[in-house]
Amino acid sequence: MVVNDLADKVGLSTTVPYQGWFDTDKQIGGWTEAYGEMLVYAYIRGGSTKVAMRSLSLLRSFLVRKPLPVSKA
């Protein structure tokens, strides 16, 4: 994964493992992994109109500086 390579090059390690995050409909919105507070990888699942809603969830999370909602398995 390219993000892992970038994290290694700047000396960051995984602080939140790769996991699914949920959109407002409680569906898997995509996947995320965090490397400290400086780097967060987030992927949006799908290719339909749901992507627009999921991207709003991602943007909202970014703007309020809170993590994406994830499963508590």
Rank of each mutant, 00 (worst) to 15 (best):
S13Y: 02
Y35S: 09
I28S: 05
M53W: 07
K9C: 04
V40G: 10
V51R: 10
G29M: 00
S71M: 08
L68N: 05
R60G: 14
K72N: 12
K66N: 05
V2L: 10
L59W: 04
F22I: 09
V3E: 09
L58V: 04
S13F: 01
P69T: 07
T14F: 02
M38F: 05
R45M: 09
L56G: 12
Y35T: 09
G30I: 00
Q19M: 07
V70M: 07
K50F: 12
G46M: 04
P67V: 07
V10C: 02
L68Y: 02
A7D: 02
V10T: 01
R54A: 06
A7E: 01
S61C: 09
P69Q: 12
K72Y: 08
A34P: 00
N4A: 12
L58N: 03
L68R: 05
S71C: 10
L39S: 08
F62N: 04
T15C: 07
V3N: 08
F62T: 06
S13N: 07
T14E: 11
Q27E: 14
V70F: 03
V10F: 02
P67A: 15
G36V: 08
Y35D: 07
P17K: 10
N4F: 01
A52R: 10
I44C: 12
T24E: 13
Y41T: 13
L12P: 00
G20A: 06
V3I: 14
D23M: 05
E33D: 11
